[in-house]
Design a protein around this nucleic acid. Sequence first.
RNA 1: GGGCGAUUAGCUCAGUUGGUUAGAGCGCCACGUUGACAUCGUGGAGGUCGGUGGUUCGAACCCACUAUCGCCCACCA
Length: 911
Amino acid sequence: MTNPEIQSARPTEMAKAYEHQPVEQSLYAWWERSGFFAPRADAPNPPFVISIPPPNVTGELHLGHAMFVTIEDLMIRWRRMQGFQTLWVPGTDHAGIATQSLVEKLLRSEGTSREAVGREEFLRRTWEWKEKYGGQIQNQMRRLGASCDWARERFTLDAGLSRSVHTAFKQLYDDGLIYKGTYLVNWSPTLGTAVSDLEVEYETRNVSIWYVRYPVITEGWAGPQHAWGSGRWAEGATEWITVATTRPETILGDTAIATAHGDERFATLLGRSAVLPALARHIPIIADEYVDKEFGSGAVKITPAHDKNDYEVGKRHGLAQISILNKDATVNAEGGPYQGMDRFAARKAIIADLEKEGLLVKTEPHTMSVGISQRGGEIIEPLLSEQWFVRMRPLADLALAAVREGRTRIVPERFEKVYYHWLENIEDWCISRQLWWGHRIPVWYLPDGTMVVPGPDEAPPEGATQDPDVLDTWFSSGLWPFSTLGWPDQTPDLATFYPTSVMETGYDILFFWVARMMMMGCYLTQTEPFHTIYLHGLVRDEHGRKMSKSYGNVVNPLVVMGEQGTDALRFTLATSGTPGQDINLNPQRIESARNFANKIWNITRFVISKLQIALPNPQSAITNPQSAMTLADRWIVSRYHRLCLDENRLMEGYNVGEAGRQMQDFLWGEFADWYVEIAKVQLEGDEQRQQLTREVLYTVLEGTLRLLHPYIPFVTEEVWQYLTRVEGGEPGPTHSLMLAAYPAGDAAFIDAQAEVNWGMTQELIVAIRNIRSEYKVEPARWVAATVVAGDRAGMLREQAALISRLGRADAAKLEIVESLEVKPSQSAAIVIGTLEAYLPLAGLIDLVAERARLTKELEQAEADVSRREAKLANEGFVGKAPANVVQRERDSLEAARAALMALRGRLAELP
RNA sequence: GGGCGAUUAGCUCAGUUGGUUAGAGCGCCACGUUGACAUCGUGGAGGUCGGUGGUUCGAACCCACUAUCGCCCACCA
C-alpha cells in the first residue's frame, strides 16, 4: 500500500473520537510494507543500532516485553527521525530448557517420551513446533508498533548463529578458556541437567536440623558387631562425636568429620577415626578452618561430593569424594541399604534407623535458604559430575575494564557497582546442559578418547562421536549483538552496524545476559558490543506486588492494547517512572493515556477545521520572530521551542519518562487549554491575523506531533496524515511522520518577555474566573471589569479581547487603566502583585463574604511579605546568594508589598 | 553479613547539577454540553516532602544516623 492509498482510505471528515483498532492495523502494515523499518542507506547521520533482547520462542507477550519494545522503539524512532541510520535487529531465543520442557509435555500427552522417540525425532518434533507456533511473539511485537527490521530477524538456533556459536566455542577452547572437568555442579534432578549458579534461586525455608552422634574407635571397641538396623549396631562404643546436619541422607557420602582448630572439646578425638552410621566406614576426625566452633555441635560431617564447602575441605585434606546419588536423585550403590530410594525417602529412612540405633541426639527447627531450580522449582542438588566450563576471570577483566574506562556506560549509573561486584567475584561458568534442544557442543571424541574441536567449516574426523551435551542457552545469547550481524564473517552489516549503540533491557538480566555479552563481545570482537546499557525496571501491579497468576493480578498487554490502544499502553509504560525503577502499573493511568490520544485527535480535528485550505507554506510566517505575531502567538511559539530543546536534552540523557510527561503537559495544558481558546478569538480578526493564527496552530501542532511520535506512533501518524493532507496533490510514498525530521528547537524563538507577559494575562483571566465561580455568576453572564495595571496597562489593553472572551468579561465594560482614583463599590477585588482588578457584581456581592475572602488573602500577603523581609534582612543571604536570586527576591517583595497595600486599602473601603 | 532502591496530596507517581508560592494524573467538592474533545471544560479543597541531627544565606534535593517496605549478592553443618 502506498501512502496515497493510506490517505485516500481516510474519510474526509475525522470521526468525533479516535478509534485505535483500524488505525493501528493499517498503519503498521503500511510502514512495514513500505520498508520504513530498514536502515536508510542515505541517512545523513551515523548508524544507531539496538539488538532486541530476544524473547523465548515459546513466549507469549507479557508486560516485560511491552516495556522493552516501548522503550527501544521510542529510541529507534527518535534517532530515525533525527536522521541516524537506524537498525533494530529482531529475533527470538531457542530457550533450551523452556522449549524442551514444552515439547516433552506434548510428547507425554501423546503417551510417549523424549527417550522413547530418540534424539533425532525429538529435534524434528521441536523444530516442527517452532515453525508452527514460534512466530506468534513476533506478531505480538508488531502490535506494539515495533519498528524493527524484520528482514534481519534471527533465531539463536538458525544456521548462521550456529556457526557463530561454533566459532566462539572453538576460539575459547583453542585459547584455553573452555575446559571439561568433574566438579560439583548444581543439578536439577527432574530436568536431568546441570544448571549454572545463576539459574539457582534461594528460598528461605523452615527445616529441621538433626544432631547425630557417630561412635569413635577406641582401644576397647573396633567397630560394630551387629547389623545396621538391629538396634545393637553401636553396642559397646564408649566415645562419640556429634555432628549436625540438615541433609541426613548425605551421611552416606561422609569421608571425614571436621572440628575447628584448637577446639578443646575435640582435642582427644583429633586424628582418630569415627565410624559412619549404616555403612560402618571408618572416617578420620580432622581440624579445618572452615568449621565454626559456635555453630551446631562444633563438629561437621564432611561430604565432599555433595556440598560445596565440604568439597573444598576434602580437597585440602585429600579426602575421597563419594557420590551417593544417581542423576535422578535416587541413592546409588554407595548408599548400601538405602540404594534405590529417592533422596527424600532415604532421608526419612535413615532418620528412623538412626533413632533406632540410638544415634539421633536431637532434632531442632532450623531456618536456612534452599537452592531452588529457577525453571523446575525443585530443590537443586549439588552433584559431582563431568561438565564443560568457561574460565571467566580473563573475560570478566575485559568486561570490567570496558565499563571502568567509560567505553560502555550503564544507565542508571548505580548498576555499575552491581556489575563490578558480580564480575569481580565471578566463578567459572558451567555451560554444558544435558538437554537435546540447543547448540550441541562442537567436540568430537576419537575411539581412543582424544578430543577434537573442528572449525565450523571442517568435517569432524572419521569415526568420531560428538559430545552429547548442548550449550547453555545464554552462551548463544551472549553472542547476539554480533552473531545477528553475521559474525564471524566480515559482512557489510557487521562492518556498518557493529558495535551496536544501546543495549536496553531489564536489570533482572544484567548478569545472565548483559555481562555475558560484554565478556563475549570484548573477547571475541575486540570491542565492547554497545556504548550504553540502559536498564529499565520491572512492571508490577498497581500496589507494587509482583504480577503472578496465583495473585490473579496479571495484566495482559494484548488485552490492554485491544481495549485502550497500543499508544495508551506505550505512553503509560514510558512515562510511569524513572530509569531503572520498578513501575507500579496503574490501570487508571492507562485510561488517562487513552484519553490523551483522543485529545490529540480532537485538537487536530479542531486545527484542521480552521485551516480551511492548504497552507501555501505553513512554516514561512513564523520563521521570523519579529513578525506580526500577537503576544499569545509569541508565547506559544516560545514555549514550543523551549519544549523542543528540553526534549532533545532529556532524550539524550535517557530520561524518557520526563520527556513524555513534558510533551503531554505542553500539548494538553498549554496548547489545548490555552492556545486553542486564544486561536478561536484570533480567528475572528482580520485576514492577516487569521492567517498567522492558522500558521501558529499548524506549526506548533505539527511539530509537537513529531516530538510525540516516538512515544505514541499510531495516533500521531494518523492525525498527521490528516493534518498534512495535500488537497489536490499527491503526497509522496514516503510521506510518513516516522520519516519526518525530529524538531531540534531554536533558542532564537524563546521569548522570555512574552512568557512573562502572557503569564500575567493568564493569571488575570484565572482570577476573574475564580471570582465568578466563588460568586456563583452564571456561566452565560458577561461581567464588567476594571483592571488597574500601572505600566502594564498598555500590554494588557492589547490582550483585552482575550481577557474578555476567556474570562467572560463584557468587552464594552472592560476597562484597563494605569491608575484609579475611586475604587468601584459593590465589587469583588482581585489583587495579583501590583495588579488590581474589580468586578462590579451588583446584587451578588455579599459584604461579609467579600471581607472574609479579602481578609484571608490579606493574611497570606502579610505572611508573604514578612517572610521575604526576613530573608532580605539576612546578611548571609544578601551577601552570599547570587545577585539574580537576591534581585528576584527584592522584586517579589515589592510585588508582595503592593498586594498587601492594595488589600488593606480595599478592606478599608468596604462599607 | 555486604550492597542497592523506595518513602512527596486519599491513590499512582514527577520534581532537570540546592534558589520565588513543591507539580501531574486519577479520586474528591462546586459549576458547566458556546460547533475540537463529556475519553471534555472551568473553578476549588488537599502535602510541616518517613524521622532525628548536621552542612549551608537557603535543603524534598547534600552529609550522618535511624525507621519501615522492597530488591540484589554472599553464606547458612
